[in-house]
Amino acid sequence: MNTSTSLAVKPNSFWQKLKQQKALVLMSVPFLIHVIIFKYIPIWGWVLAFQNYWPGKSVFQQTWVGLDNFRDLFNDPVFYQVLRNTLAMSIIKLVMGTVASIALALIINEVRFMPFKKAAQTISYLPHFISWVVAANLVRDALSTDGGIVNDVLLSLNIIKEPIMFLGIPKLFWWIIGISHVWKEVGWGAIIYLAAIAGIDPSLYEAAVIDGAGRLKQMWYITLPSIRPTISILLIMNMGYLLSSGFEQQYLLQNGRVIDYARVFTIYELDYGIKMMRYSFATAVGIFRSVVSLVLVFAANQFAKRFGQEGLM
């Protein structure tokens, strides 16, 4: 409702209203300009991908090369390796992270002793707030051949005879990424499922008890089906981020031995683009990633809507 009734003429044109609301304009338009500069001008920078960018010349003086950079990209075998690595690690992280978070939520939900429940929860989401720089340090130490806890435990259990250099084995890298992701994010991921579990109608459990269902059966027939909508919406929405998830983790844990399995899009842009001064090529890589991600996000959203879920947009 417009309360400025003291004005004789009710403003009707857009400009009149805008003039009347100049305080609101003053509060928001400077930030509108800010977001346009920092988020939208880089998109205009996509023209670089259709040029052969040479430093020192302005955008208008560059030579136009059409789709050459994209042709180079799709002819580069490394590109397909990057695509494979990105998808593989995203899917491993998504599946392992989801399963572990649901399992943890179910387990925490079974604890009746409140102080222990609180303590377990509090400790489990601490690593979420630690940077990947710190986490990568901890992972490296835990996996080191020189007194790392993982090797120590495996040696003392006689499972292995010699310490294993886990971070030097290419085939293991994806799984180390998956497991360290679970270590860092499982507690945080469980919060949303615990909230969903807390919203389940208690009368469902009462009815199940009367029917003679034990705790396992209640979990299987009531808790899990009740949080299924939450699980599916989160899974679908995360599909949209398959090409954009993670860079810090891979960058900080990789080394020369495993790089063929660790290289994801941002590392590719850095090593094959910026470090080689192929700025136009790196821009093309960025465009590919951005556009495919956008398509995936919209597809995931439509998919979620079809499932009767409210989309995020």
């Binding site: 500069i37 998109i43 205009w44 954009s244 700025y279 951005s290």
Partner: peptide, 11 residues
């Protein structure tokens, strides 16, 4: 949408 590494760097 996201402009990407290089365009953002140039900006």
């Amino acid at each position: 949408i996201d402009g990407g590494l290089v365009p953002t760097y140039f900006l």
